[in-house]
Simulated assay, not measured.
Amino acid sequence: MSPLALSVLDLLPVRTGQTTADAVSAARGLARIADEAGYRRYWVAEHHNMPSVASTNPPVLISLLAAATERIRVGSGGVMLPNHAPLVVAEQFALLEAAYPGRIDLGIGRAPGADPVTAWALRAGADGQQPVERFPEHVEQVRAMLEGAGLAGHLGGRRFTLTATPHAVAAPPVWLLGSSDYSARLAAQLGLPYVFAHHFSGHGVDQALELYRTGFRGEGEPRTFLTANVVVADTEEESDRLALPFQHMMGRLRTNLPPIALPTVEEAEALELPLPPTAFRAVRESWFVGTADVVADRLVAFADRYGVDEVMVQPVAGDQAADPLDRTPARERTLRRLAAAVGARG
Rank of each mutant, 00 (worst) to 15 (best):
G102V: 07
A184L: 13
R73M: 08
D326G: 01
E36F: 01
A296E: 09
E219P: 02
P13M: 06
A85G: 10
W43I: 03
D304I: 00
R241H: 00
L6K: 10
D234R: 14
F135L: 06
G38H: 12
A330V: 00
V230W: 09
P3A: 15
G102H: 02
G346N: 12
P258G: 11
A170T: 15
A114E: 08
R28D: 01
G220D: 05
R158Q: 13
L176E: 09
Y182D: 09
S180L: 05
D22G: 02
D293G: 14
L244M: 13
Q141H: 10
R40A: 15
F246M: 12
V313E: 03
E219D: 12
V311G: 09
G178R: 08
A261H: 05
R333T: 11
A171C: 06
A90P: 04
L146S: 03
E70T: 14
E269L: 15
N83W: 06
A197M: 09
A322V: 11
P82K: 05
R331K: 15
A282V: 06
P173A: 08
V169W: 01
G346A: 13
F246A: 06
L273F: 02
F160N: 02
E46V: 04
D297Q: 13
R217T: 13
A188P: 10
T56P: 04
G204Q: 08
L162K: 04
T163C: 10
R223M: 03
T69G: 00
V265R: 05
P276Q: 09
P258H: 00
H154E: 15
V295T: 12
R40P: 05
A149E: 15
A303S: 10
D293V: 03
T328G: 04
F225Y: 15
P116Y: 12
V230S: 00
R103G: 01
F225D: 04
E97D: 12
M249F: 11
I260E: 14
G202F: 12
A66N: 07
L338K: 09
E219T: 11
T20G: 08
G215T: 11
P86A: 02
V294S: 14
V295Y: 08
Y182G: 02
F160A: 04
R40D: 14
D10A: 07
E267H: 07
P112C: 09
Y100V: 05
F160G: 06
T214G: 08
